[in-house]
Write a protein that binds this DNA or RNA. Structure first.
Lengths: 240, 240
DNA sequence: GCGACTAATAGTCACTATGACAATAAAGGG
DNA sequence: CCCTTTATTGTCATAGTGACTATTAGTCGC
């Protein structure tokens, strides 16, 4: 708590949350965007978000906004991760706004629908998302960085998957976020060798989605960290 | 930016920064604390911090507070890292305060002195720091977790070291933060094998501080990330 | 000045984890 | 029925690591 707390004057700020809602659609990373109807940045796309209410924490506000924007009834199980807080003066031309940014990970994408404020909402491929309003390009890039990094040393990837999934789906999460191809056998070996990352579904059910040999189904395990980590291939010498 | 931005009412918040200022003293991790003079938590120790001014970002405010609390004239080179934002309603019994927490890493500890608000300030060993006022125990623990994790996959450890340092000093950073003993030869091999982590001081000067063979001096290199990471020993089966 | 002690540095060895593959199995599409 | 696609099982060479031993170069107590 501030040492000068009881002594200095202070100014009030508006506090908002901004959400980078990420999911996989057709094997590609997508982000949920809303179209702004008013100035500034009218007609530009932006990350969904909203004000923090007086009796809410930023996390609570973020989860409420997530439910509103996605139209999902139950968002309690979704992974929500605080990224950082953006507080540059002037980041909003109208007033002094401090925004706490979150990344939300969705297993399956509900169809985008107009939010509670009737703004248009849409799933946009990550690589087509820029440019966004305000400093949202930066926030989105930070979200991507964070998620990409956490895939390396945590079991976060399962947050993108439905309750039961194949190792192919799990691998697609890594490939989409890292934008890299991974070796199938090596990925499989690594995941299965990590205790608690995934566990096979007892019924030995197998999914025969489209082409190829049917794959075994797995559930997320109880582990949260990966030791040792699953490092993304280093791109030395290759084009970034 | 909030979708309901132009539609919803919002309440103003006070925005503060809280700092976990960390350094090594005699090989042990210490944190800078200030004693509270007033209620609530009068007489309890707390993390230094203060209000964000209307024309400041949280980072700017944090650096200003860091200079004020440590008495250092130039804090521009110090590593300052935003941790996360704490926004639970009721975390301050007096008013609605949202606090952006930072970790600051100091190479050498200037003597603690009374801050600008005449509050008593002191360096306290990390393990003796609890309990603190407000939710500062949590903030401090989060700072420790973050720094410990970043030591694994970044070159952050050099932020705790003076411009020129020995590998022994660098190793002490890891040992103090992780609270583990590391094998000297293996640590040396790993650090020197990582390009850009450290580079030898050309003059081949050697430091003969106290006991033991004089050690070679190194400077921080240009690299920021460690690939592959320097993983802390896993404590499977051992007492946590 | 001597021996104990401390820390830096050099080097060894076994084992783990990983990257790069080859090969086989089981589906669907023409 | 052949081809393509994906899953799955293995193999092999090598980088990286953990556990140790040995040597070197200082300080400290006496």
């Amino acid at each position: 708590m501030p040492s000068g707390y009881d002594k200095y004057a202070y100014e009030p700020f508006a506090v908002t949350v901004d959400l980078a809602v990420l999911t996989l659609r057709a094997g590609a990373l997508h982000v949920l965007l809303v179209e702004r109807g008013q100035e500034p940045y009218a007609g530009r796309w932006a990350l969904p978000g909203g004000f923090v209410a007086p009796d809410e924490s930023a996390e609570t506000a973020a989860r409420r906004e997530l439910a509103e924007e996605t139209g999902l009834v139950d968002v309690s199980g979704l992974h929500l991760e605080q990224l950082r807080t953006y507080s540059e003066p002037g980041r909003d031309p109208r007033m002094r706004v401090v925004s706490v940014a979150f990344a939300a990970l969705l297993p399956h994408a509900p169809e985008a629908h107009a939010g509670s404020d009737a703004a248009q909402a849409r799933w946009v491929p990550y690589h087509s998302a820029k440019p966004l309003a305000f400093d949202h390009d930066r926030i989105l890039a930070d979200a991507h960085d964070r998620v990409g990094a956490k895939l390396e040393y945590t079991c976060l990837a399962t947050a993108f998957c439905p309750p039961e999934f194949t190792l192919g789906e799990l691998r697609q999460v890594y490939e989409a976020v890292w934008d890299t191809a991974l070796d199938r056998p090596n990925f499989r070996r690594k995941v299965l060798a990590t205790p608690g990352f995934v566990e096979p579904v007892p019924g030995a059910a197998r999914l025969t989605g489209g082409r190829g040999k049917p794959a075994a189904l797995y559930r997320a395990g109880t582990a949260t960290a990966l030791h040792p980590p699953l490092l993304r291939p280093s791109r030395e010498g290759r084009p970034a």
